[in-house]
Simulated assay, not measured.
Amino acid sequence: MSFSERMLKIDRRIIFLLIGLCTLLPLLYPVGLPIKISPEVRGVYDHMESLPPRSVFLLSIDFDPASKPELHPQAIALLRHAFRKDLRVVAMTLWVSGTGMAEQLVSQVAQEAGKENGKDYVFLGWSPGGSAVIINMGQDLYTAFPSDYGGRATKGLPVLDGVHSLKDVTYAISLGAGVPGVEAWYVFGKDKYKFELGGGCTGVMAPGLYPLLRSGQINGLIGGLRGAAEYESLIGQKGRAVAGMDAQSATHMAIIVLVVICNLFYFTLRRQGGLQSPGLS
C-alpha cells in the first residue's frame, strides 16, 4: 500500500484529535491574531470614549446562560471600559433567567476595577413586566426599581444622584439574545425618552438589527463573539473572546489544510491508477 493510500485510510479519530487540539490549545494559550475592527463596533467604542467622567451608563444584560459564550465577553469588555472611564454604571436585566449570572459578572468586573457598590455602580436586578419595565423607568426609575438586587433602597444611592428616569441616562446599551432586547429598548426607550442607545447581540441576530444601525436608531452594534473580540482589542484587554476567535481561526485553518491534502492524495492515486475506494475510511 502506497503512502497516499495509507493517508486516505487514516483513522478518523486522529482527525478528531487534531481538530480538538486546534480548538483547545488557542483557548488555553491565546495567540492574539490580528482582528479588523468593524465600523459598527467602533461606533460603540467611540461613543463610550466621548463620555465625560461620572456620566450615567445603563447596561441592560438581556440574555441568559444559553447565550453566555457570545454575550458574556461583550458585557465584561463594556464594563471594563465603563469603569476605566469612571462612568456611573447602572446595570439590570429584563430576563429573569439571567439575573444571577448578570449580578455575578457585574460584581466580578467591579471588584477587578476596585469600584464600590452603591457609589460607582449598582445592579438593579430584574423587575416583572418585560418591555413595560422600560416605560416605567422612563417615567420614574424608583417606581420600576424601588430597591436594588441586594435589597437596598435605590433612592439615596450616590451612584443614582440626579437620576430620576431614563431621560437622565447619558448612554444605554442592551446586550440582547431575543425579546425583550435591543429592539424593545429602541421602541419603548430611546424613541420616547431620547437617550443614546447602542446594542450587542448574538451573531445570528446581528443581520436583523442592521436596519436600526443604518438608520441611526442605534449608534453601534457588537455582533457575536467576533464583535466581543473586536471590543477587547479596542480597550487593550484581550480575554475570552479573542481566545475564542484564535480557536475558531485555527480550527478553520486545520480543516482547509486537511481538505487540500486529502485532495492531493486522491488525485495522486487516481493518476497512478491505484485508487480503490475514495474518501476516508
Score class of each variant (00 low, 15 high):
Leu213Ser: 03
Gly216Asn: 07
Gly227Phe: 03
Gly239Ala: 13
Gly199Ala: 12
Leu234Arg: 07
Leu213Cys: 00
Ala241Asn: 03
Ser233Pro: 05
Val182Leu: 15
Thr202Lys: 06
Ser174Met: 12
Pro207Val: 08
Lys190Ile: 04
Gly239Gln: 10
Gly178Lys: 12
Pro180Ser: 10
Tyr231Gly: 10
Gly181Asp: 06
Gly199Glu: 08
Gly189Cys: 02
Leu209Ile: 04
Gly208Met: 14
Cys201Gln: 01
Ala172Ile: 00
Gly178Asp: 10
Arg214Gly: 06
Val204Gly: 07
Leu212Tyr: 14
Lys238Pro: 04
Leu209His: 01
Asn219His: 07
Gly189Pro: 01
Asp191Gln: 14
Arg240Phe: 13
Ala229Ser: 05
Ala172Leu: 04
Gly227Ala: 04
Lys190Arg: 15
Gly227Asp: 02
Asp191Gly: 05
Gly239Val: 09
Gly200His: 05
Gly216Thr: 04
Ala177Gly: 15
Ala172His: 01
Tyr193Ser: 11
Val179Cys: 14
Pro180Gln: 09
Gln217Lys: 15
Val187Trp: 14
Pro180Leu: 14
Ser233Gln: 11
Leu197Cys: 12
Phe188Asp: 13
Gly189Ser: 02
Leu212Lys: 07
Pro211Val: 00
Pro180Ile: 11
Tyr210Pro: 03
Glu196Lys: 09
Gly181Phe: 04
Gly178His: 04
Ala172Met: 08
Ser174Ala: 15
Asp191Arg: 14
Ala243Ser: 06
Asp191Ala: 15
Gly216Asp: 06
Ala184His: 04
Tyr186Phe: 13
Gly189Tyr: 05
Tyr171Cys: 12
Leu209Met: 07
Ala177Pro: 10
Gly176Thr: 00
Glu230Gln: 12
Gly176Ile: 07
Gly224Phe: 00
Gly224Ile: 10
Leu234Ile: 09
Ala206Phe: 02
Glu183Met: 11
Ala177Ile: 11
Glu183Cys: 01
Lys192Ala: 09
Lys238His: 10
Cys201Tyr: 00
Val204Pro: 09
Ala229Cys: 09
Cys201Ser: 13
Leu234Phe: 01
Ile173Cys: 05
Gly200Trp: 00
Ala241Ile: 03
Val187Ile: 15
Gly176Asn: 00
Leu212Glu: 01
Ile218Lys: 00
Ala206His: 03
Gly227Leu: 06
Ile235Arg: 07
Ile218Ala: 08
Ile218Ser: 06
Gly223Asp: 10
Pro211Ala: 05
Glu183Thr: 10
Gln237Glu: 13
Gly223Lys: 02
Tyr171Met: 10
Gly236Val: 13
Ala228Glu: 03
Phe195Pro: 09
Tyr186Gly: 03
Met205Gln: 12
Gly181Arg: 11
Gly178Cys: 14
Arg214Ser: 13
Gly198Ala: 08
Phe188Glu: 14
Ala184Ile: 08
Arg214Cys: 04
Ala172Glu: 02
Leu225Tyr: 01
Arg226Gly: 11
Tyr171Gly: 08
Tyr231Asn: 04
Val242Ile: 14
Ser215Ala: 15
Gly208Cys: 08
Leu209Lys: 06
Ala184Leu: 09
Val182Met: 11
Leu221Gly: 01
Tyr171Lys: 09
Ser233Met: 13
Ala184Trp: 01
Leu197Pro: 06
Glu196Phe: 06
Thr202Ser: 14
Gly216Phe: 01
Leu221Trp: 00
Tyr210Asp: 08
Gly189Gln: 03
Tyr210Cys: 11
Ala241His: 02
Glu232Leu: 11
Ile235Ala: 06
Ile222Lys: 07
Phe195Lys: 03
Trp185Gln: 01
Met205Asp: 04
Pro207Ile: 07
